Amino acid sequence: MALAAEFVLLDAALHDLKGFDCGKASLNDYLSRYAVRNSGLGLSRTWVLTEQAEHGKLPIAAYYTLASSTVAREELPAQNKSLPTYPVPVVLLARLGVSVHYQGQQLGAKTLVQALRTALELADRGLPALGVVLDVLDDATLRFYQHMGMFMPLTDQPQRLFVPMGTIRQLS
């Protein structure tokens, strides 16, 4: 099945939320039950890449969710003494999932790069953000992010990662 040309904002009227399966129940459940509601509440935004379909709701091949967050300066990998002592703004990569039908085809990397570019675009348009933070679900996912070569542990917990906006800018 052919994929759409770009990621678009999630729309429950157009996209098949319940048909998505990435093999991780928490990510499937978030998309089908909470993504639209959280968007309506202004808590986060979810972008989807769909399959092209002739009729019915469009199947989702991959998605990511971004939200605003803050981190303490002390948690940052390279502490910048010029930063304030109060929490600094970041973009939270809250969710990222790829349908089991597309795993192993580099769609995860494409989705991650698109999520980071969207975060950078939001920062460039005025959303204050020092970088992107994400929490890793499991060891396999951690290896995926480590393989990308740009993420640093945010704290002493290797499951919480950070990438500065300057590094993301180099992707463009």
Rank of each mutant, 00 (worst) to 15 (best):
S39W: 02
A129L: 08
L137P: 01
L43Q: 09
P164Y: 10
D21N: 15
A94V: 00
V136I: 12
S26H: 14
G104W: 00
A53K: 07
Q103C: 11
K110N: 01
S32E: 09
A67Y: 02
F7Y: 12
L49S: 04
G131I: 02
T85S: 15
L127T: 08
L134P: 01
G23S: 12
L107R: 05
L66S: 03
V133E: 01
F144Q: 12
L112T: 13
S172L: 11
M150W: 15
L134F: 02
F20W: 05
M150G: 15
A53T: 11
H101N: 11
Q105P: 00
R33Y: 10
R160C: 07
Y102E: 09
D124N: 14
K24G: 03
P128Y: 01
V113G: 06
S44H: 08
V163K: 01
A4R: 03
E74M: 05
H15G: 05
D139T: 13
L3W: 07
L3K: 06
Y102F: 15
A67V: 08
E75T: 08
L116W: 11
M165D: 07
M148H: 14
L120F: 09
R95E: 12
L96F: 04
L14V: 13
Y34W: 07
D156W: 00
V71Q: 14
L116C: 13
P77L: 08
Q114P: 00
E75Y: 08
R45Q: 13
F162M: 03
L83F: 13
M1A: 15
A13C: 03
Y145D: 09
V98R: 04
L161I: 03
M148A: 14
D156Q: 12
G42C: 05
L122V: 03
L17D: 04
H15V: 02
P158R: 07
M150P: 10
A115K: 14
V88L: 15
S39I: 00
S44T: 09
L27M: 13
G108E: 02
V133I: 06
